[in-house]
Amino acid sequence: MKSIFKILLLLIFLLSSNVFAKYNRIISLAPSATESLYELDIDKELVANTVYCSDGNFKKEKIGTVTEPNIEKIISLNPDLIIATKEGNYKTVIDKLIRLKLTVYVMEPYSNFEDICINFQQLADYLDKTDAAKEIINNVKNEISKLDDDAKNINKEKIFWEVGANPIFTVGKQSFVNEYNKFVNGINVFEDIDMRYPNISVESVIEKNPDIIMLVNMGDVSEQEIAKWNKYKNITAVKNNKIYLLEANDIFTPTPKRFLNGIKVLKNKLNNTAGD
């Protein structure tokens, strides 16, 4: 009887641990991949990620940046899976990891929210988390549909997105960030450019005369940009004090939950009467 009880305890332990996990030592090469693992509750299996990734409640080893990961350190950590993205990681880096006989899963680029959901589901399928991903996606879509209905009652405003300052880069038609606009009933002033992140001039922004300026705090975009744009008094966004500084993690992390969070952040910003 005691032996049967011990066997039952052992089975309970094994089922509650990650012994049966498909992968136990995962390295993420991009913030979106890291966030996807957290949303799928696979963060304990994540042993390392980039300096740009959020660690949540667990301190992870850092293997460098998205564009320049430390290959030697990656090898030393003995991963059984590396997750990369075509959106952020160089193909040369991915190819080198594959040549070193490491198992690499590569996530596809994102052009809209549907792409984000498809990529998230495919990664979940690969990690034997199919049902968890389906539930997350369904819940997020249901909540977003309610927010979308709310947006229909708001007057449309022209929005200029700045994601790079020197030189100026904005959001074009092919970026998933462009889709945020419809949930706040906005119009991206550069959505006619069939690129992800085109380089534009100050003069073109002045000509477009946006009602709102969204500055995404990443790289060289900081609070100093608010002062720079405030010099152009003829821009409607400047006249009405509608220049907003957004955190990159709130906007540029393409997972279902983070996209939903991005919509909420934008709505909160736009509900304020003054820019930050």
Results as ranks from 00 to 15, higher is better:
K2V: 09
S3D: 12
I4W: 06
L8T: 11
L10G: 12
L14M: 13
S17M: 13
Y23Q: 10
N24D: 11
R25Y: 07
S32F: 09
A33L: 11
A33R: 09
T34G: 05
E35I: 04
S36V: 01
L37H: 03
L37N: 00
Y38S: 02
L40K: 01
L46W: 01
A48D: 03
N49S: 14
N49A: 09
T50C: 08
V51D: 06
G56N: 03
N57D: 13
K60R: 14
E61N: 15
E61I: 14
I63V: 15
G64V: 09
V66Y: 01
P69T: 00
E72L: 08
L77V: 09
N78E: 09
D80N: 10
I83G: 03
I83A: 05
E87P: 05
E87L: 07
G88S: 09
N89L: 03
N89D: 07
Y90L: 11
T92P: 05
D95V: 05
K96L: 13
K96R: 14
K96D: 13
T103M: 01
M107L: 06
P109K: 07
S111A: 14
E114R: 12
I116R: 07
Q121D: 13
D125P: 11
Y126A: 08
Y126L: 11
L127Y: 14
K129L: 10
D131H: 03
A132T: 15
A133K: 06
K134I: 13
K134S: 15
I136G: 09
I136H: 07
N138A: 15
E143A: 09
E143F: 07
D149G: 10
D150P: 00
K152I: 11
N153T: 15
I154F: 08
I154R: 09
K156R: 13
I159S: 06
I159L: 05
V163H: 06
G164Y: 15
A165C: 07
I168M: 12
F176K: 11
V177K: 12
Y180T: 15
N181E: 12
N181V: 15
K182P: 10
F183Q: 08
F183D: 06
V184Y: 05
G186W: 02
I187G: 06
N188W: 05
N188Y: 10
N188I: 08
V189M: 00
F190S: 02
F190M: 04
M195F: 11
P198A: 04
P198E: 02
S201Y: 01
K208I: 02
N209D: 09
N209L: 03
I212D: 04
M214Y: 14
V216M: 03
G219M: 06
S222E: 11
E225P: 00
E225W: 10
N230D: 01
Y232T: 01
I235H: 00
I235M: 03
I235S: 02
T236Q: 03
L245G: 00
L246H: 06
P256R: 00
K257W: 02
I263N: 02
V265L: 02
N268P: 06
N271H: 02
T273L: 11
D276F: 04
